[in-house]
Simulated scan of single mutants.
Amino acid sequence: MTISGSGYTLPVFACASAIAALHWLRHHQPLTVVTVDLITPAEVAEIPIEQVAGLSENMALAITRSDPGDNLDLTKNTPIWAMVEWAEGEGEAVIIKGGEGIGKQENGAGKAAIYGYAQRLLQEHLSRLLAPGERITVTIILPAGRSLALRTSNAAFGVVEGLSLLGTSGISQPLSTPEQLATFRADLQQKASQFDSLVFCIGENGLDLARKIGINPQQLVKTANWLGPMLVEADILGVKELLLFGYHGKLMKLAGGIFHTHHHLADGRREILATYCSLAGLKQSEIQVIFDSPTAEAALTYLRSLDANTSSDWVNQVYTAIAEAIDSRVQEYIRNHSQNGMSSLVCGSVMFDRDRKIIVKSKTACMLSGKLC
């Protein structure tokens, strides 16, 4: 079955480029469309090839462009290159490398951030095109990957210098579509029928950290960027206690009244941080550095350096104020969206950093954590 009109994940386009480059090496003819078996799901996709070029007798390059469908994805229309070269000697039939724009795993000695599904997709498609004894080296390149990565929280979770080829499926399943929200709501409804206390996690890193500190996995609910409607749903379902557990660069947006946290719709992180730094009493020059920081993590690092150099306590003061503001804005948001302007739902917030270390817990979160862990 061929999917039409669907969006696909980056590994699918990388695989299509690699197939087209290998085809050029073998036949010296360009492909205009490549059919990719997605494996997961058991369907196929037809991927247009933008350009194919022979770089030498033993090397070719092919280019596709990412199309995640209707997803508000920063990789939309970004070029994806695959360079394929005949390899000599003994070893694996297909060697996969990450080139420019492919992130590196900090905790993996600089290993390319090309994960399980992408590895499997490339290996299976390319291996079947090789004769016995033939070997190739495939280098995946994202020319815009390094700059695009600055607009993500990849570095917060140990992937630096580019984007990762991540995912478990070939179909793009954006966290910002109504269909995805329906999935999250169904999960919330099921868990709210069993527990009065739940934990909202924006992403996979929050889910993983929450499990590691001892929170019952059955009480964890993924929200992605849909915090606003998920909070209202929790109140309607009668949830009594709710812990918000998230990366600080995402969760702090709630302190500014932003309840859909996708960066394409709203950001405000530097404005929020600069405001609370000002309220805490930082110098104007220091606030300017915070405001000019490229990421929330960079701003946090700067605050930590100030604390280390001046024996101050800015991180604790600033982030405690932000956490309390999150709790307050959440309660206000829920009341404003309730039918009678009242709510019995109690919320607390926990923020963690790029190393998955907790920065701060609000007062309410400290109370709820004691019950949940």
Score class of each variant (00 low, 15 high):
Leu207Gly: 15
Leu207His: 10
Leu207Arg: 09
Leu207Thr: 11
Leu207Pro: 10
Asp208Lys: 11
Asp208Thr: 12
Leu209Tyr: 14
Leu209Cys: 14
Ala210Thr: 14
Ala210Lys: 12
Arg211His: 15
Arg211Thr: 15
Arg211Ala: 14
Lys212Arg: 15
Lys212Thr: 08
Ile213Thr: 08
Gly214Met: 13
Gly214Trp: 13
Ile215Thr: 03
Ile215Tyr: 01
Ile215Asn: 02
Ile215Lys: 05
Asn216Leu: 06
Asn216Pro: 07
Asn216Phe: 02
Pro217Ile: 01
Pro217Asn: 02
Pro217Asp: 02
Gln218Thr: 08
Gln219Trp: 08
Gln219Met: 14
Gln219Ala: 15
Leu220Ala: 02
Leu220Asn: 07
Leu220His: 12
Val221Thr: 06
Val221Glu: 03
Val221Arg: 14
Lys222Gln: 15
Thr223Val: 03
Thr223Trp: 05
Thr223Glu: 07
Asn225Glu: 09
Trp226Cys: 03
Trp226Arg: 09
Leu227Tyr: 01
Leu227Asp: 00
Gly228Val: 05
Gly228Met: 08
Met230Tyr: 11
Val232Lys: 15
Val232Glu: 15
Val232Leu: 14
Asp235Ala: 10
Asp235Lys: 09
Ile236Thr: 04
Leu237His: 00
Gly238Met: 09
Val239Gly: 05
Lys240Tyr: 12
Lys240Asp: 13
Lys240Ile: 07
Leu242Trp: 11
Leu244Glu: 08
Gly246Ile: 00
Tyr247Arg: 09
His248Thr: 11
His248Ser: 12
His248Arg: 10
Gly249Pro: 09
Gly249Ile: 01
Leu251Ser: 08
Leu251Phe: 04
Leu251Pro: 06
Leu251Asn: 02
Leu251Tyr: 03
Met252His: 05
Met252Leu: 03
Ala255Gly: 15
Ala255Asn: 03
Gly256Cys: 09
Gly257Arg: 01
Gly257Glu: 07
Ile258Arg: 00
Phe259Pro: 03
Phe259Tyr: 02
Phe259Lys: 04
His260Thr: 02
His260Ile: 10
His260Cys: 04
Thr261Asn: 00
Thr261Ile: 05
Thr261Ser: 02
His262Ser: 12
His263Phe: 06
His263Ser: 12
His264Gln: 05
